[in-house]
């Protein structure tokens, strides 16, 4: 849960951003760059692509702001742009799937002495792989709801659906993920 104070701070910076304040933009960049990067990386599975797309997403956000587009909530706005950007990327590359093999490679590089954290991160990598096996819509809602802790309301705005539809989607996605993880 976001505290009242931090949401108020965000509101102030957001209004500054609307007036073209570059510092305000840096504030939002610092706050959301990790989330956006993760969101993109889960979808595209390649580090370099995720980096490029993330930079793209922030630049697009700025341009939207400058173009006098009305934005109610920066967070859902930036996720929505991220979503569209990823969709565009797949469209351009004709749904070219990136190799998943590089993930195990990274795992091997992980230090062996931290056995506990190593096992834990191994566990999480497994979960990430399972998540990636889901349909893109499922991946998206699960990521937004459980990793980013967004509200159903915000998710509905990002994926451009009714709230009830998001709930149903989320429910189905979660049961599917459970099914996969048990396998």
């Amino acid at each position: 849960m976001k505290s009242l104070k931090s949401s108020l701070q965000e509101r102030i910076v957001f209004l500054r951003l609307r007036s073209g304040d570059a510092d305000a933009f840096v504030f939002f960049y610092d706050k959301y760059v990790k989330s956006i990067y993760r969101y993109v990386l889960i979808k595209v599975s390649a580090k370099e692509v995720a980096e490029d797309l993330t930079q793209d997403i922030f630049l697009k956000t700025w341009q939207h702001l400058v173009d006098k587009k009305q934005i109610a909530n920066f967070q859902s706005f930036v996720f929505r742009i991220a979503r569209n950007t990823v969709i565009d990327y797949y469209r351009q590359n004709n749904r070219q799937e990136l190799p998943l093999e590089f993930l195990p490679e990274e795992l091997e590089q992980a230090p062996a002495d931290h056995s506990h954290s190593f096992h834990r991160s191994l566990d999480l990598e497994k979960l990430l792989q399972d998540l990636r096996k889901l349909k893109p819509e499922y991946q998206e809602v699960i990521y937004l709801r459980y990793v980013e802790d967004l509200s159903i309301d915000d998710i509905a705005q990002i994926v451009d659906m009714q709230k009830s539809a998001v709930r149903v989607l989320l429910h189905r996605a979660l049961s599917k993920l459970r099914e996969i993880t048990k396998l």
Binding site: I42, E51, L103
Partner: peptide, 23 residues
């Protein structure tokens, strides 16, 4: 709970250098 821990997964965290550079 596990899903929310994905946030801390190193492979899903961007490079610090890259973040600085992009900013």
């Amino acid at each position: 709970h596990k899903l929310s821990n994905l946030k801390n997964l190193p492979s899903l965290t961007p490079d610090k250098d890259w973040m600085e550079k992009t900013r």
